[in-house]
């Protein structure tokens, strides 16, 4: 849990002898209730993470046909779910920003886009690994894979747009429009790719019902990854807030 602790302490805590026990605790878990909440979230996420890794690797039952590679499934599906959640948040925050013009929605959209892009990358990698074991090929132009790839391109473009515009109101509005249009584009993409592929043999998916222990592992994994996502989102949001605050203050000092 070293990482979770580090995130909350504003100053690096050198174990100075003069530091009292209470101060040391404060620098470790955070001084304000908000910082302590983040620390707690980090701790819970870390514990859940370890349990999930154990469950995926040891406890969960393995598909008879697919064998060990089926364990990717418990990892891949939650990550894909988090990806969708992230871009839904980008969409909602973008709409809210254009409606309310509150900077905080803009930070939220930007944070969710950044974390979502990371998770989309993981989705693509794990999906590709799974495809290698099931279909015997790293990549196939299956509708879900193709749509996820296009989604990845859209949101990498979103992050590029943000880095090119800087923290201006017009940049925020432009990014919000891209966040909305990009999200609306996803189902259309899926639809068109499905029809495009309709002439080719359909890809077979694992459609059999899951046994209870497998469903339990999947559910717990979903929960854990949602926790991890919220932790990352909170940190990315704070980063946006602090960076914007510093930039504004610098502008005041110079101007």
């Amino acid at each position: 849990m070293q990482v979770a602790r580090e995130t909350t302490g504003g100053v690096a805590p050198p174990a100075a002898a003069s530091q009292t026990g209470a101060r040391r605790v404060r620098t470790l878990i955070g001084a304000t209730p908000g910082e302590r909440a983040v620390t707690a979230l980090g701790l819970v996420t870390g514990v859940c993470m370890l349990v999930t890794i154990w469950a995926i690797l040891v406890a969960a039952p393995v598909d008879v046909v697919q064998g060990m590679p089926f364990r990717i499934f418990y990892f891949h599906v939650p990550v894909a779910w988090v990806t969708f959640l992230a871009f839904f948040i980008v969409f909602v925050a973008s709409v809210a920003y254009l409606w309310r013009r509150d900077e905080r929605w803009d930070w939220m959209a930007r944070a969710a886009a950044e974390v979502g892009t990371i998770f989309t990358t993981v989705t693509l990698i794990t999906g590709s690994l799974w495809g290698r074991t099931i279909w015997g090929t790293w990549w196939t132009w299956d509708p879900r894979l193709t749509t996820t790839l296009i989604l990845w391109f859209i949101y990498v473009g979103y992050l590029m747009l943000r880095s090119y515009t800087g923290r201006t109101a017009s940049g925020a509005r432009t990014a919000a429009v891209l966040g909305i249009v990009g999200f609306v584009d996803v189902p259309i993409d899926y639809l068109s790719v499905t029809w495009w592929r309709s002439l080719h043999p359909p890809t077979t998916y694992v459609q059999s019902g899951l046994p209870a222990s497998a469903a339990g592992t999947l559910m717990f994994s979903l929960f854990t990854f949602t926790l991890l996502f919220s932790l990352l989102l909170v940190l990315a949001y704070q980063l946006q807030r602090v960076q914007t605050g510093a930039e504004k203050l610098r502008g005041q000092a110079e101007g």
């Binding site: 296009i150 859209i154 790719v193």
Partner: peptide, 10 residues
């Protein structure tokens, strides 16, 4: 081009 191509796919 970077922004427009993914959206033009359909």
């Amino acid at each position: 081009p970077v922004l427009i191509f993914p959206l033009l796919v359909p």
